[in-house]
Design a protein around this nucleic acid. Structure first.
Lengths: 221, 221
DNA sequence: CCTACCGATCGGTAGG
DNA sequence: CCTACCGATCGGTAGG
């Protein structure tokens, strides 16, 4: 799974010689990104499957084809790596949500809005970037308080996008529960699918979406 | 911290792991339980708040007023302590469910059955024994495969008790979703409340139950 | 149940 | 980014 470390005999003359000390912090470094990338991907996968505390930085390094000390050239600490994973997860989720809402026709009904939100949320949880958001969901307590505050702001904005549709459905009389509590229950029901959903099982994400709508809105498929 | 525990020999759930020292005085030593008890309570609380991997056996010992090596007089390993916590959690949940169903009047409607199940599940999640079941929910992956099998059997039985009510509601046309999927979503919605419910907040567990029923059955409070 | 300890492993760093 | 290493901490044990 992990490739043997590349000898790399010639010095990368074009790359800025980043001696020691401070690893780059910005995501937008075109050169560094190439080596940061496998570390982030490996960390996301391992944090998701084993949990943050049970994953060693050596595990991550090995999975990225590096030696044990190398992650600390790119990241200040193990916690910084967690933060980047969670940050990327939220960035992806937010973008996915924006796209989903933009794809909706102009006069889309609240029901169609909710369906679209549910479907894209399942995509975030179980799609190709599925290692990232579940890390946030299940490793929240492993973030420092400073990190938590930053992520909470993004997360609140993400969840706030559900309010209009739920409010409208409540006013229509379709959704009987208080919209705020309904949102918590609905997101919980979806998030929990991380524990049991099998992508190779009988149900597709479209099926799951239909079932969820049927449960929450008394809808028929 | 290290990797999740590899398969451990099945924990001797109720008997102390006494390798040396005094022989057991009696089979059901009432004194023995007194010293195991604070360890189990401390472990449940710490495993819940910090997670299994991030909790050291020294933390547990200190919280129970003991020295660092003492937990291993009572339990074979850290993993055995986790198993006991999860086991006690499931025993409590199962008993709570039995009681709730027994309290129902003879001709209770499926809706009343579901309401009772939801209410007792909230009690298990947020009541006085709330440190135990959430440990199972969120530390499932820290159990060895042997431990998981044993707990899974109990958990499956617990969840199976929801089927009759959901099936009946589906046949009534009140519950439109497939009963099996509905159960997964419903339990997920409830379980996720561990992440956000504040017992000192504005909502009581009765309020939460009403809201949940309203969401799932289109019920009005 | 405590004291004293062990080997393993951890996050992280110095220097190149 | 690797090599070589450090101090801290971990789960667990011997012996009383």
């Amino acid at each position: 799974m992990s490739k043997p470390p590349e000898p790399l005999p010639a010095a990368p003359a074009s790359a800025p010689a980043r001696r020691r000390g401070r690893p780059p912090k910005t995501l937008a470094d075109p050169d560094e990104g190439n080596r940061r990338r496998p570390l982030i991907e490996a960390a996301a996968r391992l944090f998701r499957t084993r949990g943050f505390a049970a994953t060693s930085t050596r595990d991550i390094a090995a999975a990225a084809g590096m030696q044990s000390g190398s992650p600390f050239y790119h990241f200040e600490s193990k916690g910084a790596l967690l933060f980047v994973v969670v940050q990327e997860g939220m960035a992806f989720a937010t973008q996915s949500q924006r796209d989903a809402l933009a794809r909706l026709p102009d006069g889309a009904s609240p029901r169609e809005q909710l369906k679209s939100l549910v479907r894209q949320h399942f995509e975030v949880l179980h799609g190709p970037r599925a290692d990232f958001i579940p890390v946030m969901l299940y490793e929240w307590r492993s973030l420092s308080s400073t990190q938590r505050e930053q992520i909470a702001a993004i997360k609140d904005a993400y969840e706030a996008c559900w309010a209009p549709a739920l409010q409208a459905l409540h006013l229509q009389g379709v959704l009987k529960a208080d919209p705020g509590t309904a949102r918590l229950f609905i997101l919980g029901a979806l998030n929990w699918s991380v524990q049991w959903f099998n992508p190779r099982g009988a149900y597709s994400l479209d099926d799951l979406t239909e079932q969820a709508l049927a449960l929450f809105l008394g809808d028929v498929a």
